[in-house]
Amino acid sequence: MKKITNLLLTLILGFGVSSCYDDDPINKFPVQGLTDITLSIASTNNVTGEGFGVPFTATIPQAYTEDVTVEALLKFVNGESRNTITIPAGSTSAPGNVNMQADDGLIDFNGRAVTLSMSGFSLDDNAQVGQPAAFNISSNEVSLTSYDLVQWDYDDGVVASRATMLFDWVDPASKDFDTRVFDSAFNLVEDAGSGSRYETDILNDTHPDGDYFLVVDIFSGSGETPWKFFFVHPDQTTVEVFEGVFTAAEVASGIVFPVIEWTKSTDINGNVSYVVTKP
């Protein structure tokens, strides 16, 4: 493994900066003085939760004859999280993951703003001993929303490669909501009722391919009620959030359906996927 040196962590100096790829032969930036370099980052998620990872792809403006180390920075209300990844020699991008703080000590149904950017870059400069490289880094910034929870704190072995769901609503201290999942033939296939905030479930991956829908049973409470539904896909990385408001009449009726719908599919390699929608 090459020894990576001269990692310079810098503050982000610009926003929304784009870059183009260089078709010239692979080379290195100069190793003397300060050299500007624009890094870019993208994420397939726009939401995250406490203790949950944020997937990203880091991109550099050109490939090098050696591995490159870059650092991603996730900034939230009262702290930050960093992670370094390696972009292999000859490549211009690589995937990574950086974790949201496990417990930020705040409770907010509507979530909190967090930002994701690139904050570090280094090359293997063993051939230039005594001539350290310094880089003036700029990066775009990705905005996400972090929620108290997007998935219950399951053990990895329990979740395995299955999807999970989590339902949240306003004023759970005075409103008791439970969730049920039915297939298209109205057979009950999943059932969650905790009597407190959050209804969560791991979807059984042995359920047949097909269409499913979420029912919310309302055991107590009254009045208009905002809600959110989080769906974490089997890769345990991709998370979606759906939201709405139950009317006072719906809450009074004691049951609302369908709240969310999804279609489960399995490919020839046994990989399970879901398409989730709000009707």
Results as ranks from 00 to 15, higher is better:
residue 140 N to K: 08
residue 195 G to M: 13
residue 271 N to F: 09
residue 94 A to N: 14
residue 227 W to F: 11
residue 258 P to V: 07
residue 205 D to C: 01
residue 137 I to L: 15
residue 187 N to S: 13
residue 178 D to R: 09
residue 181 V to N: 06
residue 40 S to Q: 14
residue 252 A to K: 12
residue 22 D to F: 12
residue 243 E to D: 15
residue 69 T to R: 15
residue 20 C to I: 04
residue 267 D to P: 03
residue 58 A to H: 03
residue 271 N to I: 15
residue 118 M to H: 06
residue 208 P to Q: 03
residue 263 T to N: 13
residue 194 S to E: 09
residue 157 G to A: 09
residue 78 N to E: 05
residue 171 D to R: 07
residue 45 N to S: 11
residue 47 V to G: 01
residue 64 Y to H: 15
residue 109 F to Q: 06
residue 270 G to K: 02
residue 258 P to C: 08
residue 174 S to W: 01
residue 133 A to H: 05
residue 196 S to W: 10
residue 185 A to R: 07
residue 146 S to N: 08
residue 169 W to Y: 05
residue 34 L to E: 14
residue 106 L to H: 05
residue 68 V to S: 09
residue 225 T to V: 12
residue 52 F to C: 12
residue 87 I to Y: 08
residue 38 T to C: 08
residue 201 D to T: 15
residue 198 Y to N: 13
residue 109 F to D: 00
residue 268 I to P: 00
residue 94 A to F: 08
residue 97 N to R: 13
residue 247 T to P: 11
residue 37 I to H: 13
residue 191 D to G: 00
residue 9 L to I: 15
residue 228 K to C: 02
residue 228 K to H: 10
residue 251 V to P: 00
residue 217 D to H: 07
residue 78 N to R: 03
residue 183 D to L: 10
residue 278 K to V: 03
residue 81 S to K: 12
residue 9 L to C: 07
residue 223 G to K: 04
residue 201 D to Y: 09
residue 255 I to P: 03
